[in-house]
Amino acid sequence: MLKLMKYEFRKQAFSKFIILALVGLIELLFFFGVVADRENVIVTSMMFLFFFTFGAMFFLAFESILTFSNDLKQKCSYMLFLTPNTSYSIVGAKVLSAGIQIILAGIAFFAVIAIDGAILIAKYDAIEQVKKLLLEIVNDMFNMNIKFSDIVSVVALMITSWISTITIAFFSITLSTTFLADKKFKGFVSFIIFLGLNVIYNKITSLAIGDVSEYLSGLDIYFMWQSIITVCFIIVTYLGTAWMLEKKVSV
């Protein structure tokens, strides 16, 4: 499976270089602003960085889905499906590499924003006031009994939700491929299935664990239950995708 993952990363390497180059350009703009003491340039570069972070994170998930779709409809799919690997390994490698890319990109963007923030705090007194304000907010949050387990459960839910979006998309594309093969409107049908599955997922979640308002005294429990249901959904959609590829789908 590691070899399959290696080639998944390789297939999507070009976009990572583009993202890296654009982050480098934004950072150059930021450092120019810091050195030249141009506040408007600093603010502009930070805005660019925030928007670009969100855009890049969405693009990474979208690219994993697009690569999967291309692997089912283009002739280069032979390279993948002729290798002596089960569909379970092939889909598993795709899900894992997508998950790893999202986590690593999240850490990298967080690190860049944190470094830029630290530089600003070190350079400007006014930022010191912002820092104090932020610390006060954090203290207030702790007074509200925000526990470490709350943060862990939120991060776990974010990661599992992101991965479930990818596995639901894989399942939708594969399901439409089983009965529509190469038809032009297959992409639209996949999207409708994707929306339908998300509705089912939300219904199951609310039926199983109820509403968030019932957990105000223990949000971490709510988030953990939701993460567990999301993981179950990931497993079901992963197994369903791999089974259809193994038994039904022709490439």
């Binding site: 002739k75 799919s77 032979y78 390279m79 290798t83």
Partner: peptide, 21 residues
């Protein structure tokens, strides 16, 4: 047909199938 046969069978399709990169 499955993993074991794919280890032993070399198939060449009529269409080009290598990745663009």
């Amino acid at each position: 047909i499955g993993v074991e046969s794919k280890k032993r069978v070399a198939y060449m399709s009529t269409e080009p199938f290598f990745y663009n990169y």
